[in-house]
Design a protein around this nucleic acid. Structure first.
Lengths: 204, 204, 204, 204
DNA sequence: TATGAATGAGCATTCATTCAT
DNA sequence: AATGAATGAATGCTCATTCAT
């Protein structure tokens, strides 16, 4: 269970949140709906209802705040996914469930999710710490698919790796297209493709 | 054949280019390597070697310049792809060739391609003309895959549509991951997945 | 009769006008409705439908154009007034008629008249040629009232000068207040005050 | 007593003033001597000796600064006038004194006073908040004359209103002409006309 | 006469950040 | 832990003007 309210929850300031969490929550909402570079520090502090110097007390720079935002989004995803897959043990079912949950996740963020892909688009420089954090999150996703692919029985190691790669491509492609079209059709398509890919594995 | 030099050609100003083309070329290079929002008008005019008012003579705003940049990138892609697929008539081969050419295209842009996905990440607002132009380009890609899927014989209409959707997902996923990892492995994986998807079609 | 169309006549370009007149007419409309400094050369040429260099062929600078605009406005006023006062010979009646015509003139310019007062407000520097032209127009008005006051019989020279001064004050005050309130009440008030002033002259 | 130094006091930065007051004082001097549109933000901050962002910390826009400038000028006028008329109770004397003080006020501002008339000349659009503030100041002047006219005994209500209107016309006319001629003669003439008008009231 | 293209200087405004309290 | 005030540098954009054709 996340320690943060959902990012798209009501905007009225939640006084039960610590200042730090209030900042992250406000920044998350704005980064997702407007983009990182189009969101200024001023708007964040205004909507969070805090002083500018307070933000800089908790985060040493806008970049640092962005890194925390990415970590938080990843945490929300990871915890939500684990929760969603509880009681599902079959690796095929877990993989398919992941695409179901991705659809739900994107819908809840009004199709502005995909924080890591979007931040890489905004900050393409590899030596930037924000960029690096985004790559780390991508690695987390890759590891997840790899782990589940490993547990599928009756296929070769190469087939497992190929499957993981395909899943990741469909996952990213579906996420991106949701953002472009502002609807969840692409993740329905992705789920179909995943099922087809899984079927073709055992079809001989 | 494009009227523009390749975007990543030598940086020294090419005096044979018209001012307008010089601006688009410089802006393209900078938007791709640094992102749209992180590239200022000042840097564009400085590196293009022109006056600020000259830029605004040719483009009424930074947004308008961005729309032209997107159109130009799409044109380069389309013309390059048509050229690459000349003499290939089999739709399966044309589809696979598209992923080969995508790999080449991404390598030539130093893995900063994907102008439309990136701009949608930077400008998520649907009412923005830059966003709309990016969506229009995405539609062009979708149409291309749909057309080629249509020409595959011996499969149902539904299978054709599903195939087109899957191809688009792999295309976008592969393009995005190339940008994240700064290498072309993901497009090799995508090609593999495409071949597998095509094979599974005729396996009945 | 003026050689120029009325400034607030239909905006569609009148092809029977020379380019020079077309520029003055467009500039007049814009200077009056928007102010001199808030009207750019670009808007003038756009709405006049001519090229920028054409404007600079006919007028050596924006300031020069402004001087011509002031001269033209003064000409329109003078000719219109002369026409209005035709057949009126009594100096008292001519003076009163001037305030009637001023009201008409202000109404026709939608209460944006007063070109000379407004330009002096915008360009307060005495060494500026635009400022000087405006002062010259003011002198013309002063001379007009002085001339008519001279022709009133039975009052001393000093009374004549005082009357002229008072008339000028009421004329300027009325014109300015029309612009502020965007209605012609102040010129009705001014006419009343003029009549009272004229009456008090012969009342003993 | 005003909290601000007189606008035309020595230009050297007065460190005893708050940053906000320093900005208003500098802006006032420049708006009066050069006009609003001919005074740039850069000149204001340079002569005020502050950073650009500091100006925007205290005033949200140049327009907002202008509104404050108008309010401040009105305050200086009002307070100065009240002070000047202390101990004068006869409404006729108060009215005449107002024209004496107006002369003094214009001389002290080197004949660049009249902030509200000038701003209306520069910004003729009624929906502009600067314009509206200027109109509000004009209303203050009208109210002042109306109040004093009310207190004159032995004349009808209509005569009181007519008097107030005439006074306002002479006040504005005199102020404007001072600015045009850069001397205070017109306000001497206005005072003469005021005395004549007052005299003609009791001449029955 | 008339114009399309180019320009240097300036515009108002916003940026992320810092400092004294 | 929190803040009001200040800042240098940069933002996107417009200004009146000029020049080669």
């Amino acid at each position: 269970m996340s320690t943060y309210q959902h990012t798209f929850a009501p905007m009225s300031p939640n006084n039960s949140l610590s200042v730090r969490d209030q900042i992250i929550q406000t920044a998350s909402r704005l980064f997702l709906t407007q983009g990182y570079n189009q969101t200024g520090i001023n708007q964040i502090i205004e909507e969070a209802g805090i002083a500018k110097a307070s933000l800089y007390y908790h985060f040493s720079s806008k970049e640092d705040l962005c890194v925390e935002y990415l970590r938080n989004r990843a945490k929300i995803w990871r915890e939500g996914l684990e929760n969603y897959l509880t009681n599902i043990t079959d690796p095929r079912e877990r993989i398919i469930g992941t695409f179901d949950y991705r659809k739900k996740f994107m819908e809840e963020s009004r199709f502005n999710g995909c924080s890591y892909i979007r931040i890489v688009s905004e900050i393409p420089q590899e030596d930037n710490k924000v960029h690096q954090q985004a790559v780390a999150i991508k690695e987390m996703h890759r590891a997840f698919f790899q782990e589940n692919a490993e547990q599928i029985e009756g296929i070769t190691a190469e087939e497992k790796t190929d499957l993981a790669n395909t899943l990741l491509l469909l996952f990213d492609g579906g996420s991106i297209e949701c953002m472009i079209y502002k609807n969840s059709e692409p993740l329905i398509d992705a789920k179909k493709a995943v099922i087809a890919a899984l079927k073709s594995l055992r079809s001989f």
